[in-house]
Each structure stands twice: as C-alpha cells, then as structure tokens.
Design a protein around this nucleic acid. Structure first.
Lengths: 199, 199, 199, 199
DNA sequence: CATGAATGAGGGTTCATTCAT
DNA sequence: GATGAATGAACCCTCATTCAT
C-alpha cells in the first residue's frame, strides 16, 4: 500500500512536469526552451526534473507517450463494423478532432522533432502509425479489398490526414474555415472520387 | 561590367556555401550542425559565411529558397490542359519524384524546422503552398468544379502527398516498396474513389 | 547497557558504510564516486550516510583512520630488539606487505587526496608518519647512532618505501616482478650500501 | 613565415594559459579550480581556453608536459662518467633541487592527480620514470653491477627521492630543515650503507 | 534512526557571432 | 572580401546535502 501511494505520487509528479513542459514547449518551442523554463513552470527545482526524466529529450518523449496513450484509448473501432463511409469518416475525423486548440501547437513541436529525432520517429512509426494502419487494413480486407489495395488506401487516407494537419499548422485559411466540415467532405471524396463530385 | 562579375562571384560563393550547408544539414540535422561544420565542408573560414548570410537560420532559408526556385521552375502546367487523370498524376507525381535520394533527408530537415520557425513557415505557405494550390484550383474550376470543391480537392491531394512523404520518411516499408507505382494508383483512387477499386 | 548496545550498532553501521566507501572509491576514485554510489553499495539510503559522517570527505578520513588503526596495531616492534638487518627488513616489509591486492588501489586514492587535502595530510603526518619515524629513530639511537643520523636514515628508508609504492602503482614491471624479494634485497642494500653489492 | 609567426603566437598563448593554470591550481588545487578561474587569471575568455586545450584535464597534462620537458633538458648526464658517489649525488640532488619554492605546491597537485588519472600516470611512467631509470641502470651496468642489482638500486634511489618529496610535502620538519644537506648525506648512505655511518 | 525526494548552486563545455588583421 | 582567434552568454546536467515523513 505504501508502494501504491509512492507510485501515485511519482505519476502525479511526472504529469506535473510533463504538463509544464507541454506549456513551455508550446510557447517557445523545444530547442529554445530550457530546463529551467520547465522547472519554473512546474514549480520545482531544476534537478527535480532529472529525478523523473533522463534528459530534456525524454520530456518530449513523455509528452508524446501521453498523446499516444490518449489517442489509442479513443481509437478503438466500434464493435459493429461500420459501413465504408462511416469508417472513412472515423479514420479522418478522429485525428483531426484530436488536435484542437492548444494541442495543435504542441503537436507541431512534437512533429518537428520527430522528423529529426530517430528515437521519437521510431516510436511514432511503431506505436501509432503501424497499429493504426494495420487495423484499417484489416477492416478493408474484410470488406473484400485485396491486400495491395487495402495497404494503398489506408496510407493514402492517413497520409492525407497528416498532410492536412501540417498544412493547417502552416496557416492555410481555407482549411481553418472548413475544418469542421472536412471529415464528411473528405470521406465522400475518398469514397466516390473526384468523379463523384457533382460537377 | 565589373558589377556583373561581382554578382556572379557572390552568387557562386553563396551556392558553394549552401551546397555545403545542405550536405552537413543532411548528415547531422540543422541544430546539431555548427557553423564550423558548414565552413569546413565549404572550404571557407567561419567568418566568411557571415559575409553571405545573416545567420545560421538564413542558411536554411537559403536552402529552402533554392528548393522553391527549382520546384517552381518544374511545376508549370503543360500549355494544353491535360485530362483530369493526367492532372492528378502530375500533381502527385511531381513532388514525390522531386524528393529522391539525398533530397529526402534534406527535405526532412527543412520541414522539421518549418514547423517551428515562423519565418520559414510563412515563406513556405506563401511561396510554395499558396501558388501551387491556386494553380490547381484554377484548373479544377476550368473543369467545371465549384470553388468549394476545388479548394477541398487540391488540399486533399496536396495534403495526401505531403503526408505520404512524411510517412515514407518515418520508414514505412510498404510505401518504400510501392513508391514508383504510387502516382498512378493514387491518381486512380482520387479519381474514382474507393468504390472504383475492383473489389 | 543500552548505550553499549547503541555504541556497537553505531560502530557496525559506520563500518558498513566505510566498507562500501572503500569498495567504490577503489573502483572509481574519490571524486568520481558519488554519495549515492556509496549508499547503494552499503545498502542504505543516501541520507543515512549523513547520520554517521559529516561529509563525503569525512568518509575518506574514516577510511584513513581505519587504515591507521590497523597499521598501528601491527606495527609494534617485537619486545626483544631485533638486529639491524631484521629491523630494516621489518621497516620495509611491513608497509609493502600491508598494501597488497585491493588495498593498493585504495591506498592510491587516499594518498592522492592526502596530497591535496590539508586535514588528511596533517592527520597522516601526525598520526602515522611521526610516530613511526619516532619509533624507528629511537631504535637506531639505542643502537648507538646519533640523532642526526637516526633521523636521516628513518626518513630515507620510509621515503624509499613510500616511493616504491608509488612507482609500483605507476605500473613499473620490474617492481611488480620482484615485489616479494624486495624487503630482503633492500634491507641488504641499506645495510651495506652500494659498495656491499658483489660487483 | 606567416606560419612560423602563427606557431609562435599559438605557443605563447598556450603558455600564457598554462602559466595561469599553474598559478590557480597551486592556489586552490585542481578540482576546486574552475575554468573561469584559469581564464580570469590568464586574462582571456572562458571559451578561449578550449581553443588551445581539449579539456580541463588537458591543462594539467600541459603543465606536466612542460615540467617534463624542462626536467629532461636538465637531466643529461655529464659526458665523462662520474664516480659512483657523484652519480648518486646527481641522481638525488637533481629532482630535489628541481622542486623548490612554488614548484612544490604545483608538483603536489600534479602528483595527486597522477595517482588517480590513468593518462597522466602513464605519461609519467613512460616519459619520465622509464627513461630516467634506464639511464641510471645503464650507468650502473657499466660500473660492473649485474642487471638485477642495477635495476634494484635505481628503483631504490629514485623511490627514495620521490618518497622524500612526498614526506616533505606532507610537512615533515626535519626534512625541511635538512633539505640542503640531503643529497650528500643520502649519497653517502646509499654508498656505504647503514654500517658506513660512524656509529 | 532511516529514508529518498527535493534542492539549486555550480561547472565544464559549446558555438553563433564579431572583428582586427 | 577572407580569415579564424576571441568572445562570453547560455545550457544541460550533476550531486552533495537537507529535511519532512
């Protein structure tokens, strides 16, 4: 019971520090932020950070891990298989929706470092991308699509989502204005194709 | 005439430095690379770099600007309007093809910093993304699509391409294997939609 | 009686900690070793160390003190005065023999810090060097040597021993190979001089 | 010629920094001294130190190297072979004499770190100890002593000198008072042995 | 007395940038 | 314009020590 208490305290402190790191990383970016910035924001001493995290980079990993955990938690497919349109909507809507408000800026920081940080990149590829793609592929396979098509489609859709996020982050006004209607519109586009648009 | 000569020399030296920066940024990334690394690779003194560039960040801007210039140069639509499938292939094929081999790694560095660097991001949005999208929108408008649809489609396609690049960079094996056949397959997918796939 | 028990426990704990300190100091040296290293090796918490020792430096003093105590314990001259050769052998053999195996490395650490640490140095000079020299001087005086000669000889011999230890520690192969025969050979050398060697 | 100038400047600056390091190391010891201390004493910026030395430890190596160079310079044997007594006097007198005044304190620092620093120790063993011993051994061999005896004697004498220095540094009053007469007295002692003393 | 999380001063080192030559 | 030594601010991280539990 003592141990359980300890565990809770440690987790709480870790989260306290990660919360602070998320705030200051969001404000200043990863590289410009100093450990002192994080410590001040968290209300702890500099050294305390290192009682909970190996390094500054580990803070980013920790943030990423929390994102991942919460994402995975929400990502489970509904038990009854949805129709293809609902499936597409889900696949598109979910990540777009997950990144609202403050999270966007933080995601930007994480993505940026991910492009450049081998460890973070591997984590993303293995922990998020691969499982998501696998799940989606399986669904499409059950819908009767061949493996090549399945693989292609899930990558096209997930890539599209990721790219739209980047473009949004880059400041595209159209995306910002239409963000809420995107999932439906994109699901239709992916389902029926360009030809399906009432021209 | 003296001035013209001067101009040439300056441009040559700038390119020499940018070439070196591209090499070492590609090898080590932007932040881990020092000005000394660039200077050594370029075969000049550290201080010389500052005769041609304001700062280390300006090197990245310079690299980006060269990418942009070469991209724009290749991006002009053929004079005769292609059919929609050819248009899609072009829109997809071009960026995927542009980023082969070494360029990939450099692009990764640039993207990464772009996410985090306001100036670079604005430059990208204004100089590359916006013109490209505008051109594509215009084409679709001429094909009879409404402005909302046009805007949506070009963003979907360009986002897809960007996202696929990121996923490729993240190490997706499927994408690596199918990279050459992607433009055609994706063009078909975007044209006919998921329904269009022989299920 | 309670107090006696307390006393024993305290002594035991002190020794437990000093043993651990000796081990890790031997492995890593004094400065590179952290209090945490000592605590882990001793199987106690960091803070516990400070219940028994003032500071990290006090650990070294404690180790030194134990060395001193055991050295003094063994150093008592035999009740019957030995002849001069036996005396020299004793004076040489004892310290050389005392520093075998693990003790060597620890001695190195202590010597090193002693050179630099005023308190430790004073302790060594007063507690070890002076008594040893005094005892040896007294013996020589009883053998009929004058005070000047006595002082000189004991310093020459003790210095020689110390210096040989340092050279041994520095890695001299000859000393390593001849270590066991050193006391006899050196005793003869000091007794008869260079001239005494069968040339 | 430009290069020669450069070389001189570099050497001068290195010496300037080493002089400063010697001063502050002598005052405060190696570990307690900060790079900033050295830089201030040398009248340069912190970073400048690292243009000339790899690390703080390299400063000590540099000091040691200068000591070595000057020691070697003075250590050459006279062309005509001295008699054995003169030889012993030389072997004893030289190192004792080399360490006068300020040098003593610095030597203490170097010795201390040498006990603990592998690289420094190796340097000492190879660059100073081994050559000195080899030279002395050779002399004794020429005097008709066998190799075993030669090896033993040179180690005994050199060890004695080193140990006396340590004891001097430790604050022995007798040694301090008799320092100037030591070489002669010790030479006699080593030549004739304890028996040779007029008892 | 034991614990070990918290502390925070401190230090070695880096590196973008400057400027005298 | 080219050089590269000098600069010094800044930063990540360590670790001896404290103290509330």
């Amino acid at each position: 019971m003592k141990d359980a208490m300890q565990e809770l305290l440690i987790t709480a402190r870790r989260n306290q520090i990660l919360d602070a790191a998320a705030v200051v990383f969001t404000q200043k970016g990863f590289h410009p932020t100093t450990i002192r910035d994080v410590a001040r924001e968290a209300g702890v001493a500099d050294g305390t950070i290192y009682n909970y995290f190996e390094s500054k980079a580990a803070l980013l990993m920790g943030i990423f891990e929390r994102m991942r955990a919460s994402a995975v938690q929400q990502a489970a497919l509904p038990p009854s298989l949805p129709d293809q349109r609902a499936f597409l909507r889900l696949m598109i809507h979910h990540p777009l929706n997950a990144l609202r408000d403050n999270d966007f800026a933080l995601f930007r920081i994480v993505i940026s470092e991910m492009m450049v940080n081998e460890e973070l990149r591997t984590l993303y590829a293995r922990q998020i991308l691969a499982p998501t793609l696998a799940m989606a592929e399986e669904y499409l396979a059950q819908q009767g699509y061949g493996p090549d098509h399945s693989r292609l489609v899930v990558r096209a859709v997930s890539g599209m989502v990721l790219g739209l996020i980047v473009e949004y982050v880059a400041g595209d006004a159209t995306l910002r204005d239409a963000w809420d209607t995107l999932p439906d519109a994109l699901a239709d586009l992916m389902l029926h194709g360009l030809e399906g648009l009432s021209s």
